[in-house]
Amino acid sequence: MEKKLKFLIANCCQIEPSDVGDDAGVNATPNWDSFGHLQIMVCVEQEFGVVLDTKTIAQLTSYKDIIRYLKATRKKNGK
């Protein structure tokens, strides 16, 4: 999951996956601005099969936030 998310962030931000560290996030990572953020969210929904509500989209502004959210969702769904 971590690797896939980094791959996805890298492609949305047009950087190398190796440049996406655990501290990646809005304003810390090149091109992860408000527009880039929405692009990442579109791909997260598609690739991880989740539907994010508006507030969640606004809150998941870093790599760690997204991972935490995805893990919690997975647990809730009993996987």
Partner: peptide, 15 residues
């Protein structure tokens, strides 16, 4: 529709 493919095109080809 494959959003990731579109992003990949930008990051791997047009750059």
């Amino acid at each position: 529709y494959n959003p990731l493919l579109w992003k990949c095109y930008i990051s791997h080809m047009t750059e």
